[in-house]
């Protein structure tokens, strides 16, 4: 068995170059290493140049482009949103202005009406006061007249009564008595 293996290994070493079934591990057949290393270096250099000169810059540019487009779209959307916000703010402002204007006008009108009303009331009050004062004066005059008339009548009556009784009344004591009575 051992000799067989050794013999096989010996012949295998000879037949390793391209024999249909090389023995052992083809990976450890060092006669093919130079060939593989050479072609691997060619492969790697080709891939490196293709990638670094053509493919990677192109893909990087495409990705950057896409990023840029997305950014631009986002920026445009932001701008539109800002515009919408501005418009809304302007609308709110106009609304508030209109409302305050309306308030102002209403207040002014109200104040004017109030003033007119106040003036009219004051005038009316004054007229009423004047008329009342006049009336009162007239009443006072009438009352004074009445009191005077009453006392004159009372004096006359008292004089007449005294005279009818047969007395002789002097005007002075009758006036004093009437006055005292009218007070009481």
């Amino acid at each position: 068995m051992a000799t067989e293996t050794h013999a096989a290994a010996g012949t295998a070493a000879d037949a390793a170059h391209g024999a249909a079934s090389a023995p052992g591990m083809p990976q450890l057949d060092f006669s093919t290493w130079g060939n593989q290393i050479f072609w691997l270096m060619v492969t790697l250099v080709v891939i490196y140049f293709v990638l670094s000169r053509i493919a990677l810059p192109r893909i990087g540019a495409v990705l950057a482009d896409r990023q840029g487009t997305i950014m631009k779209d986002i920026a445009a959307a932001e701008e539109l949103k800002a515009k919408a916000l501005d418009a809304e703010k302007a609308y709110e402002k106009a609304l508030a202005d209109a409302r305050s204007e309306a308030n102002r006008i209403a207040n002014e009108t109200r104040a004017a009406i109030q003033a007119d009303l106040d003036a009219a009331i004051a005038k009316a009050d004054a007229e009423i006061g004047a008329k009342a004062a006049e009336g009162e004066k007239a009443i006072a005059a009438i009352r004074a007249n009445a009191v005077e008339s009453v006392s004159a009548v009372a004096k006359d009556a008292a004089e007449a009564i005294v005279a009818a009784m047969g007395g002789k009344a002097d005007a002075k004591s009758i006036a004093a008595a009437v006055t005292a009575r009218m007070k009481g």
Binding site: H17, G18, S31, T32, G34, N35, Q36, F38, W39, L40, V42, T43
Partner: peptide
């Protein structure tokens, strides 16, 4: 039969 450093082999093909 021989594999020189420049020989085109199946390894070369698949690379």
């Amino acid at each position: 039969d021989t594999i020189e450093w420049y020989t085109i082999t199946n390894a070369t093909l698949w690379m």
